[in-house]
Simulated scan of single mutants.
Amino acid sequence: MSGKKVLMLTGEFTEEYEIFVYQQGMEAVGHTIHVVCPDKNEGDLIKTSLHDFEGDQTYTEKPGHLAEINKTFSEAEAELDSYDAVYCAGGRGPEYIRTDPRIQAIVRHFHETQKPIFTICHGVQILMAVPEVLKGRKVAGLGACEPEVTAVGGIYVDLGPKDAHVDGTMVSAKGWTALAAFMRECLKVLGTEIKHT
């Protein structure tokens, strides 16, 4: 099997685990992950954040590591047909990149061409900006996103912290603690089979 090409949508303060763990895990099995951010070029760095639940009413946020953009945004836009799937990483980035018409056009492209869409945590906010993507679909995300999912006609799925959900070729999860299950389901959708001997 030849490796697949996945476009990862990020912004400043995207959740670091959902960039690094996903990218490195997928690359380890032979897939290409292009990490892009609006108006950023290959080689640019973005700040990331680390979210955790530590007994407060909501999550805490701490500075993460710098993440390297490995594909110029405008180049990725021009090559959408070459990608096999799009991945919406979570954290704080989605709340503002979702308002960018270019991001919306990218999501719409994957929806209309019926290619896989992967989303975790707040990544579902990116999909909310293109309501037809979620209409009638079952999707997971951080619990705080449930009202928005419902408002655009989606069906929110309340998963355990280590679980993932599959609706056709859409894979979703609640947050970074589910990355193992999430990536396992993404690999299945991409047709990647890992055998142990």
Rank of each mutant, 00 (worst) to 15 (best):
E79P: 08
R108E: 15
D167R: 04
V171C: 07
A178P: 03
D39F: 01
V171Q: 03
G123F: 10
A89Y: 10
T10F: 01
L127K: 01
D100A: 07
F182V: 00
D81W: 00
L50I: 13
M128Q: 13
T119F: 06
E12K: 02
V107W: 07
Y83Q: 04
Q24K: 15
F73C: 09
G154P: 01
H65F: 14
G25T: 12
I194E: 12
V133L: 04
D81L: 05
L190M: 08
E15M: 06
T48A: 01
I155R: 13
E77M: 15
N70A: 03
E132T: 04
L9A: 05
D100I: 05
E193G: 04
I117G: 05
A85K: 08
G154R: 12
I120V: 15
S49V: 09
C88F: 06
I97R: 05
E61H: 00
D100H: 10
D56N: 12
Q57R: 08
P161I: 08
D163M: 08
L134V: 11
D39N: 13
C88Q: 09
D39H: 05
L187M: 14
A129Q: 04
E54D: 09
T177R: 14
Y96Q: 10
F118P: 03
K71T: 10
V35P: 03
C37A: 09
Q57H: 09
P101W: 03
P38R: 08
T99R: 15
V157Q: 14
R184S: 12
K135L: 11
A28C: 05
I46V: 07
Y87A: 12
D52M: 12
T150W: 05
G154M: 06
A173P: 03
H196F: 13
L66N: 10
K62R: 13
G123A: 09
M8A: 07
M170T: 13
Q114N: 14
Q114D: 14
K138A: 13
M170N: 06
K5S: 09
V152C: 10
A105V: 06
